[in-house]
Amino acid sequence: MSLQGALLIAAALFAVGLYGVLSQQSFVMIMMGFELMVNGSLMATVALWLWAAGGNPKGQVLAIVIMTAMAIEAAMGFALVTTIYRTRKADITEKLRRLKQ
């Protein structure tokens, strides 16, 4: 258990999330990719808080702000997906090619 190990795992989580965001067609799956990326950064934040920042409570505040950002991202994402679905009947990105009109 070390800072390097934790950052490595965080990088892997972030990379898997990025792969999901780039490769998935469905909106909800793309959001899952975003959540994974945020998950990785949360882990990196806490690792740095523990090993490199001397347990400064601001590190924890940053971590809960990241969590809040995750929730806001999810709520707005779902709301937008619902709106797009209602008005365009699209559930995957390919169907939005007429977004420009």
């Binding site: 390097q4 990088a11 490199a52 347990g55």
Partner: peptide
């Protein structure tokens, strides 16, 4: 893209020098 990101971020994580100030 995923693999490249992992390599880049992982390299930063492993090789960068971070201050060694553990928490209580």
């Amino acid at each position: 893209g995923g693999v490249a990101t992992f390599v880049a971020l992982g390299a930063v994580g492993v090789f960068a020098r971070f201050p060694d100030r553990p928490a209580r």
